[in-house]
Design a protein around this nucleic acid. Structure first.
Lengths: 340, 340
DNA sequence: CTGAAAGCGCTTACAG
DNA sequence: CTGAAAGCGCTTACAG
């Protein structure tokens, strides 16, 4: 059982009294970047302060500093759900990059529900975060323009939205890579499990694919593009719909998310089709399971960790009032047995 | 682009001056639980304070309050990796339960590395968290006893450790459920992909299985229990080892984690075996993909979200210096095609 | 019932 | 180069 008799952390005052100097001098030294502490204190004083701080394991009290400076060094991230591996990976990137900049990051789930997005945003603001990162932007949403009007610093990751800085995968390119690959493999009848129509990821991957496909001279049957959830259930439903409504059976399915692809594979198998032989399937994100599935899944590798880190860098610029350009990181295609 | 001209949040002083009363009175009212504000202010004053607070959308400044009270209302959680769905789900539970108690939760990854566990713990403590939740306890680790000696309030989740309060799945029971099921299905030669030997999850699931199996009159071949990673790679490696070293071919494999089970399925398939016909596979945690795999995976359902919530409740008790008993939540077995 | 003061730990202009 | 003061927003014993 815990004793809960934590010893009181060392403060600036402790350091000052032990050194026989004023707390403000300690603070100045600890904040001077240069080892020599130009203007903050004499080289000798600075040395003694730093030495004692190290010896006593002094750590600044971030809340106290924040109270004084008006900044909390807190970043808030809102994602559809953390149990979605794609967002979890991106958030790992956010966490790492934030820690490097001496920020702390929070994360909350919105479940892609507009009410929850608002609610969670207000909670984050009540906690006085310095800025926000949204992984759940809706193309038809009203929250982002509103926050912008209120002057709240934020950036987007994962999904983009016109007019706001975002760190995303180049999803259009990702879709194009899949079109090139399937065309080259000789497929001419294809279908798309396109994801949610409110998410730029689904929209961009799909439009990249469709436009390139047409550019190559291919046709997309009406009813061959089905909007659906990004999860396994969404993928299997999309395939059911495609199989029921398509006039011509597709020989390949592009699912804009690996989990949807896994759901699609399940649905195809229960129709008696062998993926990789009777029908090709390609997913998106190249999550670790893709390569390890019983039938390894071809997938577009997106740099999820890097997207999270890029989002933090972008937010840093916004907070510093520097100019920002959205970042689109390049994906590449991993071809495996499911479409080999 | 963001304007970054956020309007200053409303403070207690703002409320007080608008009402012509003293800030301390406002604070007292806002902290009195009862609507009538017994002892804090007159019913009329209390009413006016609450009304204005609502109207101006006053939110307390948690850092300022914490500075005064000595508590930050911050909880730190450390997990092996957030991109492990099991931990991500548990952390969702942590986040939700913490928010309900007006706590904010942080999470960091330790990658199951003892150095990182220490480092991340110290970062959390430097941020003055009120308490910690560890999802990455090692059975042979030295960190927990050390933190206990230092009087730092913490609890464990996911993995247990003797002598410390934990919220876990009843992993022994989970292993027993699998043994009963496979025995009943007529299997007599079994193997186990047992997970990491430093994690109570793997150890308990395995010992629950093995002990029950022997109790039923079964034998476990030497070399039929293989320690391995919890991920897909670990599962496929474990199966490779089992197939190479087992004297008798098993007819069933119990993998203590769904991702390991997926890896196992892949390895079995590349040996030409059809899971569910030639060989049974059972996983653990019943993650959402289990049911949606091309060959649906039998799995022990563990209440991941509830484990996270229970950990927060446990930590709350520790912080209140109430007595705590470890919580072991009951799992159940979902039988599917992979072992049907 | 309500005001006034002190102080949590830190930072930052301001003197000297 | 260094000290002293003020103040961030809040809470809490203490008076009256």
């Amino acid at each position: 059982m815990n004793e809960s008799s934590r010893r009181r952390p060392v403060t600036i005052k402790d350091l000052a009294s032990q050194l026989g100097i004023h707390p403000s001098t300690v603070s100045r030294v600890l904040h001077s970047e240069a080892e020599v502490a130009r203007g903050a204190a004499s080289a000798e004083t600075a040395r003694r302060v730093r030495e004692l701080a190290r010896k006593l394991e002094y750590y600044p009290h971030p809340q106290a500093a924040g109270l004084r400076t008006g900044r909390t060094s807190l970043l808030g991230a809102i994602v559809p759900r953390l149990s979605d591996l794609v967002l979890a990976m991106m958030y790992e990137g956010v966490e790492e990059a934030a820690a490097e900049l001496n920020y702390s990051a929070f994360v909350m789930n919105s479940r892609d529900d507009p009410g929850e997005q608002r609610r969670k945003t207000e909670i984050m603001l009540a906690r006085r975060v310095d800025g926000l990162i949204f992984g759940d932007a809706h193309l038809d949403g009203t929250l982002m323009p509103e926050l912008d009007r209120r002057g709240i610093p934020f950036v987007l990751m994962n999904r983009r939205l016109d007019g706001f800085p975002s760190a995303t995968c180049d999803d259009i390119l990702g879709g194009e890579l899949v079109a090139d690959h399937l065309w080259e493999k000789g497929h001419r009848q294809v279908a798309v499990a396109a994801g949610e129509a409110y998410a730029s990821t689904g929209v961009d991957r799909t439009s990249g694919f469709v436009n390139r496909w047409r550019g190559l001279g291919g046709d997309i049957e009406p009813g061959a593009v089905v909007w659906s959830g990004f999860d396994t259930a969404g993928g299997s439903q999309a395939v059911e719909t495609i199989l029921q409504t398509a006039r011509v059976m597709p020989t390949a399915v592009f699912a804009v998310n690996d989990f949807a692809a896994i759901g699609a594979m399940g649905a195809l198998r229960s129709r008696g089709l062998t993926v990789g032989q009777d029908i090709a399937v390609v997913g998106f994100n190249d999550t670790p399971i893709a390569a390890q599935l019983p039938i390894p899944l071809s997938s577009v590798r997106s740099p999820m960790l890097e997207i999270g880190k890029a989002a933090v860098q972008l937010l840093r610029k916004v907070l510093n009032r520097e100019s920002t350009d959205s970042v689109r990181l390049k994906p590449d295609l991993q071809v495996r047995e499911s479409s080999g």
